[in-house]
Amino acid sequence: MSYNRTFHSVEEERQYVKEKLAASFRLFSKFGFNDGSAGHITVRDPENKHHFWVNPFMVHFSQVKASELLLIDEDGNVLKGDYGNGINGAAIAIHSAIHKARPDVNAAAHAHSPYGMAWSTLGRTLDPITQDACTFYDDHSIFNDYTGVVYDDSEGDRIAKALGNNKAVILQNHGLLTTGQTVDEAAWWFIAMERACQVQMTVESTGSKPLLINAEHAAHTQKQMGLPEIGREEFKPLYDMITKEQPDLLK
Rank of each mutant, 00 (worst) to 15 (best):
M1H: 14
Y3C: 05
Y3A: 02
N4E: 15
R5N: 10
F7R: 07
E11C: 01
A22T: 01
A23T: 06
A23S: 12
S24Q: 03
R26H: 15
L27N: 06
F28H: 12
S29I: 03
S29G: 15
K30D: 15
F31L: 13
G32Q: 08
D35Y: 09
I41G: 00
V43N: 06
R44K: 12
E47K: 14
N48D: 15
H51A: 06
F52H: 07
F52R: 01
N55F: 04
N55L: 11
H60K: 13
S62L: 07
S62D: 15
K65H: 12
A66H: 07
E68P: 07
E68H: 12
L69T: 02
L71F: 04
I72P: 04
D73V: 10
D75H: 14
N77W: 03
N77P: 05
N77K: 14
K80F: 05
D82S: 11
Y83L: 00
A90K: 07
A90M: 10
A91W: 00
A91P: 11
A93R: 01
A97Y: 04
K100H: 08
R102S: 03
P103E: 05
D104V: 02
N106V: 02
N106H: 09
A108D: 00
H110M: 03
H110P: 09
H112K: 10
S113E: 08
P114R: 12
G116Y: 00
A118D: 10
D127K: 06
P128E: 04
Q131D: 13
T135C: 14
D138R: 09
D139M: 09
N144A: 13
D145S: 12
Y146V: 10
Y146H: 14
G148R: 07
V150A: 00
D152N: 11
D152H: 12
D153C: 12
G156D: 09
R158C: 00
A160K: 12
K161V: 02
L163I: 01
G164W: 01
N165L: 03
N166Y: 00
I170F: 02
Q172P: 08
T178W: 03
G180C: 07
Q181G: 14
T182W: 04
T182M: 08
V183I: 15
V183R: 02
D184G: 05
E185Q: 13
E185K: 06
A187M: 11
W188I: 01
F190M: 09
F190D: 06
F190G: 02
A192F: 04
R195G: 04
R195L: 08
Q198P: 00
Q198I: 00
Q198Y: 10
T202C: 07
V203P: 03
P210E: 05
N214S: 10
N214I: 14
H217Q: 14
H217I: 10
A218I: 00
T221P: 06
T221F: 05
Q222A: 05
Q224E: 11
Q224Y: 09
M225A: 13
E229T: 02
R232H: 10
E234L: 15
K236R: 13
L238P: 13
M241G: 05
T243Y: 01
Q246E: 14
Q246N: 15
Q246A: 14
L249T: 05
L250T: 09
L250D: 11
K251E: 09
